[in-house]
Amino acid sequence: MATAVAMGKTPARGLAIRQILLYVGLILFGVLTLSPFILSILGAFKSTVEIGAYPPTFLPQVWHPDNFIQVWKLFPLFPRWFLNSLGLSVTVMVLNVLFCAMAGYAFSRLEFPGRNILFLAVLATLMIPLQVTMVPKFIMLARLHLVNTYPAVILPNVSTAAGIFLMTQFMKAIPKELEEAARIDGAGKFTTFWRVILPLSVPAMTALAIFSFQGQWNDFLWPLIVLTSPHLWTLPLGLAGFSTEYVSNTNWVLVGSIFTTIPMAILVFVFQRYIVKSVATTGGK
């Protein structure tokens, strides 16, 4: 009996110690992950003098919530950038999901000549990086007189290879019988797509929607190339311009950073479940 108890006890204690070590490791990494955010939030409340002081202070000596108002006053375009970011992200998200779902339907459920070649062509574009196409894309849009307009940002992003791939794979798994049933009821291809396939593809569409939104919200290089007027800028562009203008006012730059990050953070917390799933299937692209 005694040996049995001892045998049962030791592994249990070993297990507990191991669990504690694992948690300590995870918490340390969590602190490392969060500290830039925490320092930034505290920094956003400091005065311009204190933010540049050495050694840096952890908590602000005097709290300056007025920094948040100051930034909006100094940069009357800030609300505009916010709305630009929001509008562009929502538009790209809606169109990209719709167009990718349409293409996914054709690739997964319909028969037509050239299907495999077209699908391979779409997949091949995954290997073509932005730096190869950014210059000719700019020139093409310039020829269409679209540079420095919202469509210049929207158009190239409303059908993505990764999105089409995601939708095609997902729709392939929908049972054929459901479609048959719709056809027997007299539904055409468009009705079937709209009434049967789309409602069943909501999980994949949600994942794609989140990625499109996040990608557009954070995109910097492409808007930087095609948008020159400050009133058309998105938040990252405005923030980058803002930071070069106010190099020594890091506290204000941090306030702007917080304004830029919060909407995404809210979105992620609301849709956490879907994000984990979709990052796992697509690798976050």
Binding site: G30, T33, A240, T260
Partner: peptide, 16 residues
């Protein structure tokens, strides 16, 4: 917690 940096814009994280 770990995922928070992944959703932060590259400009914001560059500035921070």
């Amino acid at each position: 917690v770990y995922y928070l940096p992944a959703i932060t814009s590259s400009v914001v994280m560059g500035l921070i």
